[in-house]
Design a protein around this nucleic acid. Structure first.
Length: 351
DNA sequence: ATTATTTGACCGCT
DNA sequence: AGCGGTCAAATAAT
């Protein structure tokens, strides 16, 4: 818990600091002859930062109870800045019964864009270890879909899996669908989630494998990462539940046969740890940054393992078209199933 | 030697 | 039958 708090605090500080920096920039641009676009963008960023800060505060206030054992994912609290109701509803997204056999694990999707402007590789990989177990060519998709599962599946029975699919249209965008939540997470430091150093290393390399040779990670990655990686919020495919929180997406790209020249690769876990905020950089798309805490709380923490099954539906996190996060969780479940307290988890694992 | 990735086979669902 | 998802043997990486 404390770790969670610390994380939140730092996240909060980061947001506020960022907001201040952006405000300064804006101030500067006001004097200069900058385009209104630039200013607008800055304003957006500022709003986004403060929005996040508020969100964090809000969490602390309301959902503070995250107990080490069974947490609850923090529901995205309803603080949306200028969230426009995405309301695209359509029901297609819920794959409610994604086949009953599969314990209906919570599932959500992310769209992540990795820009390779500066070489960058995409990087981010969450703190989890993923192991690829398959790849498939998907009907109409230009690129194959990769399947990953938690490395500790056997050891810890962690059932989290994810699918990574590169967008046909924009190869720099990857759709990552997470299914299930990590139960391998350490409670703060008991930590097996992040296994032994060796594993980490191995993993590292795995992640980097194809293109990686080059990049040394850490800071560089972090930096580029911060500036280049963004969560794309325009995916309209899935319109479903929108969530402001994103799980920390990790890439495990692999063989991208057609992939253009080594565009992505990964960095090490450590770098990921820092993948704090993604600062928005593009002016055209909407994105927002994600804090580690948030990500973790939603995507990776060991959420209620049993409750998972209770959630008979899939949670699909989507991005909205507006540039600010919309925190609108729409659960297809009936109230009964969904506990008022929300079975969602709370972030806690950061040391 | 161990662990991860690759890749075709297999399986269940539609 | 076709497709998406998973398995697992072969292979690669350390």
């Amino acid at each position: 818990m404390e770790s969670g708090s610390n994380c939140e605090v730092s996240t909060l500080l980061n947001e506020l600091t960022q907001g201040m920096e952006l405000a300064k920039q804006l101030k500067f641009h006001l004097n200069s002859t900058s385009s209104t676009e630039t200013r607008e963008m800055l304003v957006q960023k500022i709003l986004s930062s403060y929005d996040k800060a508020l969100l964090i505060l809000n969490w602390n206030g309301s959902v503070e109870q995250a107990q080490p054992g069974g947490q609850a994912i923090v529901p995205l609290s309803p603080i949306s800045v200028d969230g426009s109701p995405l309301s695209d509803d359509s029901d297609k997204g819920f794959k409610q019964d994604v086949s009953k056999k599969r314990k209906m694990l919570p599932r959500w999707t992310d769209q992540v864009r990795v820009s390779s402007e500066n070489w960058l590789e995409g990087p981010h990989d969450d703190i989890y270890s993923w192991r690829k177990y398959g790849q498939k060519d998907i009907l109409g998709a230009k690129y194959p879909r990769s399947y990953y599962r938690c490395t500790y599946r056997k050891i810890r029975g962690c059932e989290a899996t994810k699918q990574v699919q590169r967008s046909d249209e924009d190869p720099s965008i990857f759709d990552i669908t997470f299914r299930g939540t990590h139960t391998c997470m350490p409670d703060t430091h008991s930590g097996p989630a992040i296994a032994s150093p060796e594993k980490q290393k191995q993993k590292l390399k795995q992640n980097n494998h194809h293109d990686n040779q080059k990049q040394n990670q850490s800071k560089e990655i972090l930096e580029s990462f911060q500036t280049n990686l963004r969560v794309n919020t325009e995916n309209l495919d899935n319109k479903e539940v929108e969530s402001f929180l994103y799980p920390s997406p990790s890439f495990g790209f692999m063989s991208e046969s057609h992939a253009s020249p080594s565009m992505f690769d990964n960095d090490n876990q450590f770098g990921n740890f820092f993948q704090s905020f993604i600062s928005p950089a593009s002016s055209e798309s909407n994105y927002f940054s994600v804090s580690p805490c948030q990500m973790n709380s939603f995507g990776g923490v060991p959420v209620m393992q049993h409750s998972e099954s209770d959630l008979t539906e899939i949670i699909s996190a989507n991005t909205s078209t507006t540039n600010s996060p919309i925190l609108d969780l729409d659960f297809p479940l009936d109230p009964v199933d969904l506990d008022p307290n929300f079975p969602f988890d709370n972030p806690n694992f950061f040391p």
